[in-house]
Design a protein around this nucleic acid. Structure first.
Lengths: 351, 351
DNA sequence: TGCTGGTATGTTAGCGATAACAAAAAAAGT
DNA sequence: ACTTTTTTTGTTATCGCTAACATACCAGCA
């Protein structure tokens, strides 16, 4: 009889993962003391802490944060939505964000929208179900419902990589149109007059669309008569598509002197296509990209581009969001902030 | 008196985000019914469901999954650790994983280890705190404690991108050493005899180290007297470092005929450096990479490489993990599985 | 009319942790 | 020795949801 009494709980306890109660029992303290020992900053007698840690180690216990966040009302999540995980620009932003969060105990919940606002809306909702303490999105274009969800979420919202006309709250970005226009003016200053733009076929990539708009605006402002736009491939366009696009460009407008590509990847594809066809770059045609990917500085000839501080966008967003979270928790009202990140035309050998 | 009673809760309730109780009250049902309405597959009268959805809409209610997972014991998380978020190979794997999870209701918790097993250990622990239903890691090298945490977690564990000697449980990958050896044999078959290897300085990138080992083994097996290894830069080495490395290689062993680079990025950097120095590729020196990044097919000349099915590694890992989760929940014992993914030498212009 | 078998909804009791307060123990001061 | 203060630990009551079981309801049929 006594034997049975001892045996049963022993078996029952080992079948499932240990909980804080198991640790507390083993260390001879209450769960609250265990909870305190596992977070830093709480006042615990050193001997007790050691005893608890021993029990934790013995049982292989790992704290359950979902349970903790339910009672503490802090999930420790920050949600971030980027268009693509395969684009080194956005990956850099994610890294910047992740790095700025390190040490704060916040964990990044990453989602990728595949450049679709509909997918973004679904992601916003599924992220919000996890009760993140802040959310970072890319760009200022959202579905009406997505926008509403963000606005009503009751957490800091940061839109990045763009300067939306009517931002939801905080912004960390720059004007893609203005950056693109700056590149046009740079080419104009170098003497090029017949300047073309290569981009994707749809406006799915809103930043790409903004760059095109900036190009058209700048070309008109400079009094260059015609704009020459090649739209080819579903955004984001690849290296290969950049190559095909430049072939079409030269076929359609043989007089063209320079091409601005929507991204460095397509610019590199265009450059290589020119090399294969023995069109000298920049003599026969100059090529410029956007984004300052590693490849633009490494190719031969190296590619003129617009340097964007991708990592900093993420990093600044992270710092802004930490400030906002802390402010809101302290009951202060946090004013909407817009951080404009820098960019610059980087002249290289291809123009 | 009565007025006060009515007012107070009204004020109190509106201050915070609405909970399921608010929705239930508004729709005139119990929270259980709301809970059922918000998940599919439950038997609910259509009229009731409509009424509940209306209340959800009116209140802007979003389900709290952390609370739900506490009681249902299912968090809906899958953790995945990759070395770098900026490497398109691993990003592809993450995408494959994410895609295979879509529709299952599972969400990816991504972490990057920066090629460090120590950082991996910390990440494993912080991921485990979120009680993921499965965990995917890159490679078979872990700290002893990391290994123990994984083994004791009580969830399916999948090691990827490698074929570990003693796997923890499931594996989806291939032998990097064998793949690298295959590339050596391919070059040997093309008549190259003085073959070099370019990689990083440390073994932090264990797959890179395996590739070097495979190279050395194959060179010895073919009876080629000397191995020529250039170690340069902290892994993962960049395009620029690939360029510097090949310059050193030619300086040190001018007789060298072919170079295998640890990745396509460094191979591209090496290629461009050769072009700048007017060393013909492949005539003066042949160059091969690893990974079949987009750049290797797009560069001019295009780069011979080993094609690895990165996306499939992630995708297969996802499918395997879904099976394992389902099996464990059904009480079945799930046998350890090893899925070997394909790879192939892709001959191109650079060799 | 009463019984069966299904569908639709409600009730109760946690899930595993932490906040907020309470109490006990130890240290310090007089 | 006896307060007073500080440090350490414990108690109780949730957090917001869902599992498991209980019950009400309805149609169909003998």
């Amino acid at each position: 009889m006594i034997l049975k009494k001892i045996k049963e709980p022993a078996i029952a306890i080992r079948s499932a993962a240990p909980t804080m109660i198991d640790v507390a029992t083993r260390a001879g303290v209450s769960t609250m003391t265990v909870s305190r020992a596992l977070r830093d900053g709480a006042s615990i007698a050193e001997a007790t802490r050691t005893r608890i840690m021993k029990a934790v180690e013995d049982l292989g216990y790992v704290l359950d944060q979902s349970a903790g966040s339910l009672s503490s009302k802090r999930t420790g999540f920050v949600a971030a939505l980027i268009p693509s995980i395969n684009n080194s620009n956005f990956a850099d932003t994610a890294r910047g964000l992740s790095d700025s969060l390190a040490g704060s105990g916040l964990q990044l919940l990453l989602g990728y929208t595949d450049y679709s606002v509909e997918k973004e809306e679904r992601l916003i909702e599924s992220m919000l179900r996890r009760r993140p303490e802040a959310i970072v999105v890319t760009g200022g274009s959202h579905t009406p419902r997505g926008r509403k969800l963000l606005a009503q979420a009751g957490i800091p919202v940061i839109e990045t990589w763009d300067l939306p006309k009517s931002p939801i709250r905080h912004v960390v970005g720059f004007s893609n149109a203005e950056a693109s226009a700056k590149l046009v003016r740079y080419l104009h200053g170098k003497g090029y007059r017949k300047i073309a733009f290569i981009g994707g076929t749809t406006n799915r990539d809103t930043r790409g669309a903004d760059r095109r708009a900036g190009y058209e605006h700048a070309v008109a402002a400079l009094g260059l008569k015609d704009s020459r736009v090649i739209s080819f491939g579903t955004p984001p366009i690849s290296m290969k598509q950049g190559g095909e696009a430049i072939a079409r460009l030269i076929e359609q407008w043989p007089e063209v002197e320079a091409a601005i590509c929507v991204s460095d990847l397509s610019a590199f594809g265009a450059l290589v296509e020119c090399q294969r066809r023995k069109w000298a770059v920049p003599k026969r045609i100059a090529i410029a990209g956007f984004g300052d990917f590693e490849i633009s500085s490494c190719s031969y000839p190296s590619i003129t581009t617009v340097g964007v501080h991708c990592y900093d966008i993420g990093n600044s967003a992270g710092e802004l969001l930490l400030r906002a979270i802390e402010g809101e928790r302290a009951g202060r009202s946090v004013p909407a902030e817009t951080i404009i990140t820098e960019y610059a035309v980087i002249p290289r050998e291809s123009t």
